[in-house]
């Protein structure tokens, strides 16, 4: 049996009488690329924030990396990486300083930080920019750097919230190469996206509509199930009925 790194059952988040996330249940296997799709306002980010320990659920159960989101949020944080919608490295620190800081707070030993960051900078082709402020880098490079920093401490799971928003197609392609590489090394990828071509890259995808999980399967099975040629059609069919409008 495959190891389950995320298990959630009837997970709910309510703000007043608004159910941002309404009784969602799913499981994610180790090393899987798990896509999380949905229109704006469908509840993707809220669900992801709960799993990262940034937000308390209202009810339901969730285990991430074997830890309970209610009681062991801090344990979860040690075992995950997170890349938010907003770019959130420090723009007034250099590339190397950002890597050092985030590596350091996750407890990577200093010598190891030095060794790994040299490799990383080389891989990303940022050798010339290593000592430049991150704020001066183009968006695509920033996003690749942010992803690398999110997996720098070799977490068990990495959560990516719309990581390729606003990025050009070539960089997106490179970004997904990095995701595959990380998945191959055993890191579970939990990714939200708007791009249906990206959905095709995932092992399995979940489509959320109005806070609920409406579909969960591999892209091929979903297309068969909805008798659609591509993921776009699948998504339209499900999202058309949505009552919540985008933000």
């Amino acid at each position: 049996m495959e190891e389950k790194v995320i298990v959630c059952k009837d997970l709910t988040k309510r703000f007043g009488d608004f159910y941002a996330v309404n009784k969602i249940s799913f499981e994610v296997d180790k090393g899987e690329i798990f896509g999380f799709l949905g229109a704006n306002g469908a509840g993707k980010t809220t669900a992801m924030r709960i799993l990262c320990g940034l937000s308390h659920p209202t009810s339901g159960e969730a285990m991430v990396a074997g830890f309970d989101v209610y009681k062991q949020a801090e344990e979860i944080k040690k075992n995950i990486g997170y890349m938010s919608q907003k770019f959130s490295l420090y723009e007034n620190l250099t590339v190397l300083e950002n890597i050092e800081f985030f590596g350091g707070v996750y407890g990577v030993p200093y010598a190891e930080i030095r060794r790994r960051s040299d490799n990383l900078v080389q891989q990303l082709g940022l050798t010339a920019e290593a000592k430049k402020l991150v704020g001066a880098l183009p968006l695509g490079w920033k996003q690749k750097l942010a992803f690398s920093v999110a997996i720098f401490h070799q977490p068990r799971i990495v959560f990516l919230d719309e990581p390729t928003g606003g990025v050009d197609p070539v960089t997106r392609r490179q970004f997904w190469d990095m995701i595959y590489e990380a998945a191959a090394s055993g890191i579970t990828i939990f990714v939200t996206t708007h791009y249906m071509d990206e959905a095709e890259y995932c092992n399995r995808i979940t489509i959320m509509v109005d806070g609920k999980v409406e579909a969960l399967d591999s892209p091929a099975n979903l297309k068969a199930q909805f008798k659609a040629d591509n993921m776009d059609e699948v998504f339209y069919r499900l999202a058309r009925g949505a009552k919540r409008s985008g933000d």
Binding site: L54, E74, Y82, S84, K86, S88, F102, G107
Partner: peptide, 14 residues
Amino acid sequence: EVGTIEQINVTPIQ
């Protein structure tokens, strides 16, 4: 405002 606090909050920093 910038959003870096969220990145901090998701780390094990106490």
